[in-house]
Simulated assay, not measured.
Amino acid sequence: MKKLIVTLMGASLFIAACGGNDVVNEASNSTNNETTSNGTYDLASGEEIYQQKCAACHGGDLTGAGASAVTGLTYDEVLDAVVNGAGSMPAGLVTGSDAEDVSAWVEKVGNE
């Protein structure tokens, strides 16, 4: 009887621990992703990419640091600049889904 109780308690703890991770992952995904009319984007990734590739010129607060401010822009305007270049900014600094993520993040933060 004692072994049965210990086994059931152990199984309960195991199941509870596994179930808890799903809830945490779902919560973090929902806060890091945003769905817009253009698709679904990973905003946390977009912010990280911005800090690595864009902030030196456009400023950590998007107000410009040697290059133009990137506030008040739409997703499409940012994506066009990232993909095709703008002014002295060369094309292709960020590509693919990274370009989409950073564009979505800049639009969101730059319009708050």
Rank of each mutant, 00 (worst) to 15 (best):
M1Q: 05
K2M: 12
L4V: 11
L4T: 05
I5C: 02
V6S: 02
V6L: 15
L8Y: 04
L8V: 11
L8S: 14
M9K: 06
M9H: 01
M9V: 14
G10K: 07
G10R: 05
G10D: 09
G10H: 06
G10M: 05
A11E: 00
A11I: 08
S12R: 01
S12L: 15
L13C: 14
L13H: 01
F14C: 13
F14V: 10
A17F: 14
A17T: 10
C18R: 08
C18H: 05
G19C: 03
G19T: 04
G20Y: 10
G20M: 12
N21K: 12
D22G: 11
D22Q: 09
V23R: 11
V23H: 01
V24W: 03
V24C: 00
V24L: 14
E26Q: 06
E26S: 07
A27S: 06
S28I: 13
N29E: 08
N29G: 08
S30E: 07
T31Y: 10
N33S: 14
N33Q: 08
E34W: 08
E34S: 13
T35W: 03
N38V: 03
G39A: 13
G39H: 08
G39V: 05
T40M: 08
Y41E: 01
Y41S: 09
D42P: 06
D42V: 13
L43R: 10
L43P: 05
A44R: 14
A44E: 09
S45Y: 06
G46K: 14
G46A: 14
E47S: 13
E47I: 02
E48N: 13
I49L: 13
Y50W: 09
Q51G: 01
C54Y: 02
C54S: 09
A55T: 04
A56M: 06
H58D: 02
G59M: 05
G60K: 03
G60Q: 07
D61V: 00
D61L: 07
L62M: 10
G64E: 04
A65V: 02
G66M: 06
G66Q: 03
A67P: 00
A67I: 00
A67M: 11
S68L: 07
S68C: 01
A69L: 00
A69K: 10
V70L: 15
V70K: 13
T71P: 04
T71V: 15
L73G: 12
T74M: 07
E77G: 13
E77K: 11
L79W: 03
L79A: 12
L79P: 04
D80A: 15
D80F: 08
V82N: 08
V82F: 10
V82L: 13
V83S: 14
V83P: 01
G85Y: 00
A86P: 00
G87I: 02
S88G: 07
M89N: 10
A91C: 06
A91P: 00
A91F: 01
G92K: 01
L93N: 07
L93H: 00
V94N: 01
V94W: 02
V94Q: 01
V94T: 09
T95Y: 01
T95F: 01
G96S: 15
G96F: 09
S97P: 00
S97F: 06
S97K: 15
S97L: 11
A99Y: 07
D101I: 07
V102K: 05
S103M: 11
S103Q: 10
A104H: 09
W105I: 04
V106A: 15
V106I: 15
V109H: 07
G110D: 04
G110C: 12
E112W: 00
E112H: 07
